Simulated scan of single mutants.
Amino acid sequence: MIYNKEDIEGFDRVTKLKIINSVTGIKPANLIGTINNKGQSNLAIISSIVHLGSSPALLGFVTRPQTAEVGHTYANIQENEVYTINHIHQGFIKNAHYTSGKFDADISEFKRCNLTEEYIKDFKAPFVKESNFKIGMCFVEAIDIKHNGTKLVIGEIEQLIFPDDAIVDGDIDLEATESIGISGLNSYYSLKKVAKHPYVRIDEVPEF
């Protein structure tokens, strides 16, 4: 199949959302936990988290176009400048998926989707207790993406919480952590390690 821009623009809204959200391949499936100054927690499923650098340790994610109805996560980050990223695992995919609903600000997705808030000392934002791979983030900056009204939200890693056996030969083994991938709007995939290669040095590149 070959689709040009005109074909793509002609898709109905849901078909277009599903296809364009799938073309990058499998993406990490995470829940972002936040809280506002009134103590109201929020939880949102996000599949756009990307590595932006290791020193400092920066991660970014892309918000939906900002409206009063869908801006709770970003508004809470602006208030408190901290948030959490929590890997999704097979045991609570369904719960995590339904946090994507457009709930009112006074409804906590933690409670509505039967997930548990977890807090650690001196860090205000809630983690997801059910997740075994958790990241505490401090807000750094947000970059407006003017073409579609979204934002690239950038944060620095302040906390890392994961199982002792997640480190294998110096690498994080995402198969061992049972982390889940996502494609499109509603398809979830388990992860399986299929290969590992050494750090590339030019004089060690093999003949192919």
Rank of each mutant, 00 (worst) to 15 (best):
A105S: 13
G91W: 06
N36T: 04
I77Y: 04
T84G: 05
A68H: 12
D106S: 15
G53H: 14
N95K: 14
I46N: 11
P56Y: 15
T67Y: 10
I107H: 05
N86K: 08
S47R: 04
N80W: 03
N86W: 11
D104Q: 07
A44G: 11
V62C: 13
E69P: 09
S48D: 08
L43I: 00
A96R: 05
T73C: 14
I88N: 09
I35N: 10
L58D: 05
A96D: 08
I93K: 00
I45E: 01
K102T: 13
S48E: 10
D104G: 08
G39I: 06
A105H: 10
D104T: 00
A75W: 02
G71A: 01
I77R: 00
P56W: 09
G60M: 01
T84L: 08
A68G: 12
S100P: 01
I45R: 03
I35T: 15
F103C: 03
N37W: 05
I35W: 13
Q90S: 13
G91K: 11
T67D: 07
T63G: 08
L52M: 14
H72V: 01
H87R: 04
G53A: 09
D104H: 00
N37R: 15
H97P: 09
A57K: 13
A96W: 05
P56R: 13
T67W: 03
I93Q: 03
I107E: 14
S100F: 07
A44Y: 05
H97T: 00
G60Y: 10
H97C: 04
E81Y: 05
I77F: 00
S41G: 07
V62F: 14
I93D: 02
V82R: 02
I85E: 11
I85W: 09
D104P: 11
I85M: 10
Y74V: 03
F92R: 02
E79T: 05
T67K: 12
A68Y: 12
I45T: 05
H51V: 03
P65A: 03
A44M: 12
A68E: 15
R64E: 15
T99Q: 06
I35D: 15
S41E: 15
F103Q: 12
F92P: 03
A44H: 02
S41M: 04
G53V: 04
I35L: 14
D104F: 04
S48T: 15
T34C: 12
